[in-house]
Design a protein around this nucleic acid. Structure first.
Lengths: 247, 247
DNA sequence: AAACCATTGCGTCTTTGTGACACAATGATA
DNA sequence: TATCATTGTGTCACAAAGACGCAATGGTTT
């Protein structure tokens, strides 16, 4: 990762990425630990002068998670002038680290929230010299976050739950081949409630975004479930137009 | 309106308000004409240091439209580095006007898009010394806009059309008492298509956000339609939770 | 090897929502 | 007084969604 000097960034605008992962029936979020503290933060950064928000987000994902071409969705802007009032906690650290000029953190900045959904197992964490630890934290166990990052995570989850009702979900979250119960488990995890197995299958099939394969998952206890894959074309189409047009 | 000096604003972040009005079965957007040009712009401005995005938007609505407590919805962020490349057209003007330091416009800035829906007739336009004209322009007749304001308007409309399927609409757009055909006309205008009168009525009533009054609209040709008003409590509830929960 | 049993796949029944349309009531207008 | 565009209500057919029955599957247990 190349360093970013203050000349190259817009000092008042940052992006923060809420990266959701799905593992062992839990929805998790990816957090970084800044060296020498017990504080955790969303991967993020200031925006370089010649980049869009989306490009800035994609750069962060590539640097920190090692993945490209991930669907990133802007969901809100966090602009409370008080949001950086806890900054003193990390100002000392910033000074040590020398990545950005401390003055950047002392003045107010807004943050644009992006979220991504991805397959937890594909991630190869790339730590840099500003953080020596990272972890996936269950969505309801997030704590010790800097600034308003907890609020950002909560808002991302709320947006995700709203969007799941009119947008297809799962493309980057599930492995290439997956079973219907796995898909259901993903939905249940995001929504935080149980769904009827049989009705779920019927409705999901009606969306027409999956290809049923002629294979079954092997080596599992009990009846082996069929494997599915995403129908790329229809999935993209559904992303554009949504499911429930209602009027 | 008090002047804003460069010391009080964040130079890289502006808000632009897409103010939709509904009149004569047309969806219109409110635009300002900068003095001495044929260029039109969305009401907007830079953000003061101690304000949130929402507060900045509310200030603009109050100053330019004379209305308070209007529902403003953040819908996107416009961050293309090229977005201000047409700025030279207005740089001369900015210089004359002296509202902001020209350097602010010469450097890149992002803009956060907000939209509002309101009753066209309640508006008392307040012109300032930067603009001597304002007008309501039919949504499909917008032209000669500065920067990427046309794109901002298009995106706002797209968002509005998407949101109308899971969010109640109309509170600030219709008069306090209104008829079902008026409500339908609003929906048809936003969606850009005709709806069945009878099915619309049934569905709208099922949403449970309206109170049917014991009065009819008087002095109209043909059969007089009943008047309705919004059920404040249920409307707010619906705004929070949405209509189509789907899962 | 046979019985077991948790899980899957498919189907049924009922209720609710939606699109299309019929018909009577209304009330200003001719 | 007759006309007629418009409104309010209802019907019918069909699709979507929730609840649940039941047989098939295939590893596990005895």
């Amino acid at each position: 990762m190349t360093d970013i000097t203050n000349q190259d960034i817009i000092p008042n605008i940052s992006v923060d990425c809420v990266i959701f992962g799905f593992h062992e029936n839990e929805l998790k979020v990816f957090l970084l630990n800044y060296t020498g503290t017990n504080l955790w933060a969303l991967p993020g950064g200031f925006i370089e002068k010649n980049k869009t928000i989306e490009e800035a987000g994609a750069d962060i994902l590539k640097e920190r998670i090692g993945l490209e071409n991930i669907f990133l969705k802007q969901f809100d802007v966090f602009s409370n002038p008080e949001r950086s009032k806890h900054a003193p906690e990390i100002l000392e650290l910033i000074k040590k680290i020398g990545r950005y000029d401390v003055s950047v953190f002392q003045s107010r900045f807004i943050s644009i929230g992006l979220y991504a959904l991805l397959d937890h197992t594909k991630v190869t964490t790339t730590l840099d010299r500003y953080s020596d630890k990272s972890k996936w934290v269950a969505i309801d166990k997030v704590k010790n976050t800097i600034l308003d990052h907890k609020e950002i995570i909560n808002t991302a989850l709320k947006t995700l739950r709203l969007q799941i009702s009119y947008t297809p979900i799962g493309y980057n979250l599930l492995p290439q081949k997956f079973t219907m119960p796995e898909m259901q488990s993903l939905y249940e995890t995001i929504l935080g409630k149980k769904l009827d197995r049989r009705n779920f299958q019927r409705k999901m099939n009606a969306y027409n975004i999956l290809n049923k394969l002629d294979e079954k998952r092997e080596g599992v206890a009990h009846k082996a479930p069929f494997l599915y894959e995403f129908n790329q074309e229809n999935y993209k189409e559904a992303l554009k137009n949504g499911f429930n047009n209602s009027w």
